[in-house]
Design a protein around this nucleic acid. Structure first.
Lengths: 211, 211
DNA sequence: CGTGCCGTTGACAGGCGTCAAGTACAGTGG
DNA sequence: CCACTGTACTTGACGCCTGTCAACGGCACG
């Protein structure tokens, strides 16, 4: 799926910097596309770190809708939870590897986990602003910039997730996402290479949209 | 402002349980209504705890809009930040007292702060779901239930914030908030006592709205 | 009683969701 | 090599929800 990227293209950061004296990390567990990593209601006694691939964290609502709260890529910690049971689901996007630590065996309050929690918190707040106060086209622009940042600020990259995922992340419909991408293309801000390939032609223009 | 509450009414929890061996808490600092506690760009080397009153945390966007990310009441920690400078603003709602700890003098990674960070994170996620996937009336219902919870699950309570604040928290306009409240009243789910007084008549019905 | 602020209500328009049809592309099998 | 199929994505038509603009009502305060 997202393994067929031309070599010259940026991708999401999959290289993990060597951790300094972080013990008790289990070996890499591998997941196929769409496979559940944890689900709502399960005991939350592990914290995960993405090694390669990507992860979506979401909840299903009673009206049948799905809200994706976050995407996680290589190096990101996820699964931190304020209660002892998960209130969200996590699934692999494409072939994905994660490692985890067991919270029973480890002190919960570690600097690495603390800053991971703050990073997650900060990302959630930024996303609140996007879905709260931005129009459809602004949300899509913000999303593209975010994905660019997370693939090392590359101007050209490939989305690892489908339109449905993008829509559920931005609290839009796939049709609106599609239309917004088309508008951005017509305005000369981006170019589309196939369904997943994105090129940011007008980086500054995109940023101006998101103010 | 929110000091003129009839004694029989629930209020937001202002009583602080005695902390067990938590040192270095500065004495209470008092703020008047609307006073800034910290603002975007300042160094974030303090973490605050509400002693009485309430706090709104928000950001102003370029289009002139304001998004309130969270309200904080007695006992809540706020001001935790992943970077060394604040990216948000915090203001007092009504007469408000806070205490803070200095992060320079204290180890950042303490259990109390860690769980505070996770609580903040969790609240941000729940709020993402509300503003992402709920209609106007569902958001208002969810808000009332949240305020009820935070005033000790009382059926009858008084809002400490204005309609503008509610609107900016729910990513709506004041008109839509007002209309939604009227609808909830006409459906017999709530009763309004003045502008700020709320009585939840149909608690279950409200919950069913928010599924 | 006038003034100002806050909240409510109404009329209207626009953006986005919904429904539906059309296109592109990969995989499969003949 | 090509037809067939299914999935993902795009585009179009239309309606509703919510934002915008405006007027009105209630209440505190001077």
């Amino acid at each position: 799926m997202n393994t067929s990227i031309s070599a010259s293209w940026g991708r999401h950061i999959n290289v993990i910097p060597p951790q300094s004296g972080e013990p008790a990390l289990a070996p890499i567990s591998s997941f196929v596309d769409g496979q559940c990593i944890y689900s709502c209601g399960e005991r939350a006694d592990q914290v995960y770190r993405v090694e390669f691939g990507a992860v979506r964290v979401y909840r299903l609502l009673a009206n049948g809708r799905r809200q994706i709260l976050a995407f996680h890529f290589g190096g990101d910690w996820f699964g931190l939870q304020s209660r002892d049971r998960h209130s969200l689901n996590a699934e692999a996007i494409g072939v994905t590897g994660v490692r985890y630590i067991n919270l029973q065996e480890e002190p919960l309050c570690r600097p690495a986990l603390f800053s991971a929690a703050l990073e997650n918190f900060s990302a959630a707040q930024e996303h609140q602003l996007v879905i709260g106060r931005q129009s459809a086209i602004e949300r899509v622009a913000a999303f593209l910039l975010e994905m660019s940042e997370r693939s090392g600020y590359s101007r050209r990259f490939e989305l690892s997730m489908s339109r449905v995922d993008v829509a559920d992340y931005l609290a839009l419909t796939i049709e609106t996402v599609s239309r917004s991408l088309t508008k951005l293309k017509h305005r000369g801000f981006i170019e589309l290479h196939g369904a997943r390939g994105i090129e940011l032609v007008g980086y500054r223009s995109l940023q101006n949209l998101c103010l």
